[in-house]
Simulated assay, not measured.
Amino acid sequence: MKTGCTPAIHRILVICEGNHCRGPMAEAMLRAALPPGIQVASAGLNALEGLPVDPEVSRLMAEAGLDVSGHAGRQLTEELLLAADLVLVMDLPQKAWCEATTPSLLGRIFLLGHWRPEGAREIPDPFRQGAEAFRTAFENIHLSVSDWLPRLAHEQRSA
Score class of each variant (00 low, 15 high):
10 H>E: 12
68 V>Q: 01
5 C>L: 10
138 F>Q: 08
106 L>N: 09
155 E>D: 10
148 W>H: 07
3 T>D: 14
31 R>L: 03
127 F>L: 01
136 T>A: 07
97 W>A: 15
52 P>L: 09
112 L>P: 06
104 S>K: 12
99 E>Y: 09
145 V>Q: 01
81 L>P: 02
12 I>S: 03
94 Q>C: 08
139 E>P: 04
158 S>A: 15
123 I>T: 05
125 D>S: 04
48 L>R: 10
17 E>A: 08
12 I>V: 14
142 H>V: 06
6 T>M: 04
63 E>A: 14
123 I>C: 06
107 G>F: 09
129 Q>S: 11
107 G>L: 05
159 A>Q: 13
52 P>W: 09
47 A>F: 13
78 E>T: 11
51 L>C: 03
44 G>C: 08
8 A>P: 07
147 D>G: 15
71 H>I: 08
100 A>W: 14
118 E>M: 13
27 E>G: 03
90 M>P: 07
49 E>C: 14
113 G>W: 03
87 V>K: 03
4 G>Y: 08
42 S>M: 05
59 R>I: 00
61 M>L: 11
123 I>D: 01
134 F>P: 00
127 F>R: 01
7 P>K: 08
97 W>F: 14
76 L>I: 04
11 R>D: 02
140 N>A: 03
109 I>T: 08
110 F>I: 09
89 V>H: 06
136 T>P: 01
94 Q>Y: 13
135 R>V: 01
33 A>C: 03
44 G>P: 06
108 R>D: 14
74 R>H: 11
154 H>L: 11
63 E>D: 15
85 D>F: 12
38 I>Y: 09
37 G>F: 03
136 T>F: 02
46 N>I: 11
135 R>T: 03
7 P>M: 10
112 L>E: 09
127 F>E: 00
112 L>W: 13
72 A>D: 05
23 G>E: 00
66 L>C: 06
130 G>D: 12
153 A>F: 12
1 M>S: 11
99 E>N: 06
73 G>Q: 00
147 D>C: 14
111 L>A: 04
98 C>V: 15
49 E>Y: 14
14 V>G: 05
118 E>Y: 14
86 L>I: 15
70 G>N: 08
33 A>N: 00
81 L>C: 13
55 P>D: 03
3 T>H: 14
57 V>K: 02
80 L>C: 07
35 P>R: 11
28 A>W: 01
120 A>L: 12
40 V>D: 04
61 M>K: 08
63 E>Q: 15
148 W>F: 08
156 Q>C: 10
146 S>Q: 06
100 A>N: 15
90 M>Y: 10
58 S>R: 07
73 G>E: 02
67 D>C: 08
45 L>T: 15
36 P>H: 13
113 G>E: 07
90 M>C: 13
135 R>Q: 09
123 I>F: 02
96 A>V: 07
103 P>D: 09
10 H>A: 12
134 F>H: 09
33 A>M: 04
63 E>L: 12
29 M>S: 00
132 E>T: 13
42 S>L: 04
138 F>K: 04
156 Q>S: 10
158 S>R: 15
84 A>F: 08
151 R>A: 05
74 R>G: 08
38 I>P: 07
11 R>L: 01
25 M>S: 02
42 S>W: 06
54 D>P: 00
36 P>C: 13
16 C>M: 05
91 D>P: 05
55 P>M: 02
141 I>C: 00
84 A>H: 05
40 V>A: 07
108 R>V: 15
19 N>Q: 01
75 Q>A: 15
75 Q>N: 11
129 Q>P: 02
78 E>G: 13
5 C>Q: 06
